[in-house]
Nucleic acid binder design. Structure first.
Lengths: 152, 152
DNA sequence: ATGCATGCAAACTCTTTGCAAACGC
DNA sequence: GCGTTTGCAAAGAGTTTGCATGCAT
């Protein structure tokens, strides 16, 4: 778009945040950016077992915490499953959460600035971020449930 | 406003939900409806210690779970403090979350149906509920932080 | 070389569960 | 009286912490 995109743009993000570039951090960050499943710390830990067998759970938690603090990723706690999920998409957007299968999808193309501006104007808060959790049944689960319970 | 409000409207809600009306349930439900602080289970437990000293924490957790399942209250997990907060306001609205003092306020008068409709149309999801978390600095904390750190 | 990051294990918090006694309907 | 709800205590899950070793800068 502007310059060429180096293959290690994530390394650049880490350096700009003044975080040391360790293999663990880079692997966690890469896995999260590559995923669209909004994984938990445990998900990432298990996924990276094959690549970094010696990595500890604490490192995953510490790293995710560091990335959040430096604004590189965001937390999602809206899944109501007791675990914090993470999201590499840091701009305000909508999370679609299926109350049956508990998957989380992103909706990036519904504009939210109007809502944000209205809230800012009325509340006097200084805007930092916004997250919308939309709870519903995904199309797949609608069909499944309709088939299972024809009466309801 | 419309009719007279009977003092035990909450009892009616419990009965409509086919939940037995126990002193513990009523006290928890009342405390939550009366509060605008979006308390956690532990908050409610501690608050009700003086009224119901024999009540156990498990009862608070069980009761809140039952109230959520029957649609009388809602969970808020967006505070990112590791605990689930609860809200007696069950219509879609915006939660204003101060990232400095961690208080949660409601914004009830910003319309959200447009956003909900757009998402429903694009996603094919069957709408159930929506929750908006707006993160920012409340006016009080803006002043406090400005005074503490004049350079930033 | 300096000091931040990692790995390990224990600790901590929040929440859930099992079971007997108590209570609402 | 029947079946749900409570209270207690223990267990469970997710996350954090302390400290010595290792590694990025």
């Amino acid at each position: 778009m502007t310059d060429r995109l180096p293959p290690d743009i994530l390394i650049g993000h880490l350096k700009e945040a003044e975080l040391r570039v360790t293999p663990q951090r880079l692997a966690i960050y890469r896995a999260l950016v590559a995923s669209d499943a909004h994984p938990t710390a445990k998900d990432l830990f298990e996924q990276l077992q094959s690549t970094l067998p010696s990595m500890s759970q604490a490192t995953v938690y510490n790293t995710l915490q560091a990335l959040v603090e430096h604004g590189l990723i965001q937390e999602i706690a809206e899944a109501h499953d007791g675990a914090v999920h993470y999201d590499a998409e840091t701009t305000p957007h909508i999370n679609l959460i299926c109350t049956n299968c508990h998957r989380i999808e992103d909706v990036l193309d519904v504009p939210l600035h109007d809502v944000a501006e209205q809230v800012t104007a009325r509340s006097g808060y200084q805007f930092q971020n916004m997250r919308i959790a939309y709870y519903g049944l995904c199309p797949r689960c609608q069909q499944t449930l309709a088939a299972d319970q024809p009466g309801e």
